[in-house]
Design a protein around this nucleic acid. Sequence first.
DNA 1: ATCCGAGTTTGATCTGAATCAAATCGTAAC
DNA 2: GTTACGATTTGATTCAGATCAAACTCGGAT
Lengths: 239, 239
Amino acid sequence: MDIARSEVFEAGTPVACRSCQARHGVVCGALSNAQLKELNRHSLRRKVDAGSEIIAQGSESSFYSNIMRGVIKLCKMMPDGRQQIVGLQFAPDFVGRPFVRESTLSAEAATDAEICVFPRNLLDRMIAETPELQRNLHDQALNELDAAREWMLTLGRRTAEEKVASLLHLIATHAEPQTAISTAFDLPLSRAEIADFLGLTIETVSRQMTRLRKRGVILIENSRHIVVPDMAELQKISA
Amino acid sequence: MDIARSEVFEAGTPVACRSCQARHGVVCGALSNAQLKELNRHSLRRKVDAGSEIIAQGSESSFYSNIMRGVIKLCKMMPDGRQQIVGLQFAPDFVGRPFVRESTLSAEAATDAEICVFPRNLLDRMIAETPELQRNLHDQALNELDAAREWMLTLGRRTAEEKVASLLHLIATHAEPQTAISTAFDLPLSRAEIADFLGLTIETVSRQMTRLRKRGVILIENSRHIVVPDMAELQKISA
DNA sequence: ATCCGAGTTTGATCTGAATCAAATCGTAAC
DNA sequence: GTTACGATTTGATTCAGATCAAACTCGGAT
């Protein structure tokens, strides 16, 4: 009888991802019930504190993840200590580099976060077996590529003021609103991290923020909490 | 008898891509004989002169291509004319943005080039039907993403001298050597294009090139033809 | 051969952002 | 509450690269 019920379950009822509680992720949304059950046996939900490193640059990582909550920053570090943030990822993004063992960048929680962790070997097999999963990951890779190239334009050709406005606009667009006012949000990054994202120094970031404040484009409630009275104006300055 | 011979051909003999004369491309390498025959009926080889635009930023493109020969540059332009080159592509790279109709960047031949042109609709169908093709394109997207992020580090955190050295090293690594000496090559880009790739001005690029020349790191035969006596030194300056 | 013009190099000067240096702010520990 | 310390802001000065301006190079047209 157990077997019979199990069979029915397998055929008709959708299985939820044990970590996501659903099937909303890039990974678990693309799997069959049988695959998801197998994945459930080997994946786990993990809480990570702000600042903790998920993947280290130059290391071999044995797992991938899905972001459930929070913001993950992708960093590249030079031997002399210079650092560049090369991407920000939000829920429900996939984190990891399929097909290559050694990571050329580090992934670090910018805020407290929760991630769904999958073993690399198992997921690699599922990618090879599941065109829809491959398609989802391909899609995300292409979106990240578009974002990276947009950011190359920002880094190469925009002024400090435009850079800061671009970042605020990016965060306002991607972060979940903190209050009912959709134009208020908490910065997931410190001034130092913003500087490392924009190719600037902390002092320049700080000065540009106060300039935007004095011009009435933003309100700074405290250094992390920002309100944008006129989002269109912010966007105009970005471009 | 014709039919019988055709059948044997279908089963055993590999079909060559009409444009590539082979199956070396990202696209045609992944297809079955039957698919390749269909693709052959609808694809064509095209010569493009240096400077001619293959895809326009903001336009809908109805085709993809494979680079057979030459160098293609990917550019992003701002409304006020500021420009950033966000990628260089070499044979046998794939050119195009699967899954999105409108291009957010322009693709332009940096040198005289030859490309294999495929209709978008047909190739989209083949991607959906052919996991190996999807895998190849996914792979290329991830490699381009790695390259874009490496370049973000260059744009955000490297000095003008390091930027120029990085570019010379990139070209030396990717371009086919022009002579027997593997450290001599022709720049596929003008000073203005190099400036747009590195987020600098032409004057700064020129000055850094002469500095490298005076330090004995490179020889400039004419403004386009470069010889690198000590590639390790060049690489050291890049990092 | 000479002329032309785009592309490149070189020079002089300026400026936006970096660097150096202090003063505040915020908050966690006591 | 007071202390202490890291994060942020603000100020003064410097500098790498931009801008403005003028030669120079070289390949192609006449």
